[in-house]
């Protein structure tokens, strides 16, 4: 897999968790301005960045993502008061866990995007794609470890 990193054609797969109030609106704003950015980011809409369970991020790496972005309201702007602060705490904790799996910190990025920051959204996505291209494909995909997958799936089978 390591030769992928030197491959200029490597296109990282990125999953973004965007809170509906600020960051998702910021991504929409980037859309309205109709200026292109790389297509590597696929967005999952969440009510709040505080909803991003660390297991979601681990699951992304288990399933082959090269990077994860958590995009939140700016500190103090959270629609739910402090969900973004929890997202920050969890991301910091995640970085330590990911390091232990040999997954680089740059692969899990948290950014604050306001509803008006379409430009910032575009820049951050572009920058992340470039960084991940340099970093190459995820070398140490999280194993589908029985413990982890049990944790990830420990809800009852039916929704």
């Amino acid at each position: 897999m390591s030769d992928d990193s030197s491959n200029a054609l490597f296109e990282p797969k990125i999953i973004g968790f965007l809170c509906i109030w600020c960051a998702y609106a910021g991504a929409d704003k980037a859309g309205s301005s109709q200026e292109p950015y790389p297509p590597n980011l696929q967005i999952i809409r969440v009510t709040c960045s505080g909803r991003v369970d660390p297991q979601f991020v681990l699951s992304c790496f288990q399933n082959g993502a090269d990077g994860v972005m958590i995009m939140a309201c700016h500190p103090g702007d959270c629609h739910y008061k402090e969900g973004n602060c929890r997202a920050l705490q969890r991301q910091r904790m995640l970085l330590r866990i990911l390091r232990q799996f040999g997954i680089e910190e740059q692969r899990c990025r948290l950014e604050y995007i306001s509803a008006n920051e379409g430009g910032k959204f575009r820049e951050v996505v572009t920058d992340t794609v470039e960084n991940l291209k340099k970093l190459g494909k995820l070398r140490h995909a999280l194993p589908l470890d029985p413990v982890l997958s049990a944790a990830a799936g420990n809800h009852p089978a039916s929704p």
């Binding site: 009510t47 909803r51 369970d53 660390p54 629609h79 739910y80 929890r86």
Partner: peptide, 9 residues
Amino acid sequence: RGCGACVSA
């Protein structure tokens, strides 16, 4: 209000 803070906590 459905923020989900408790769900992920």
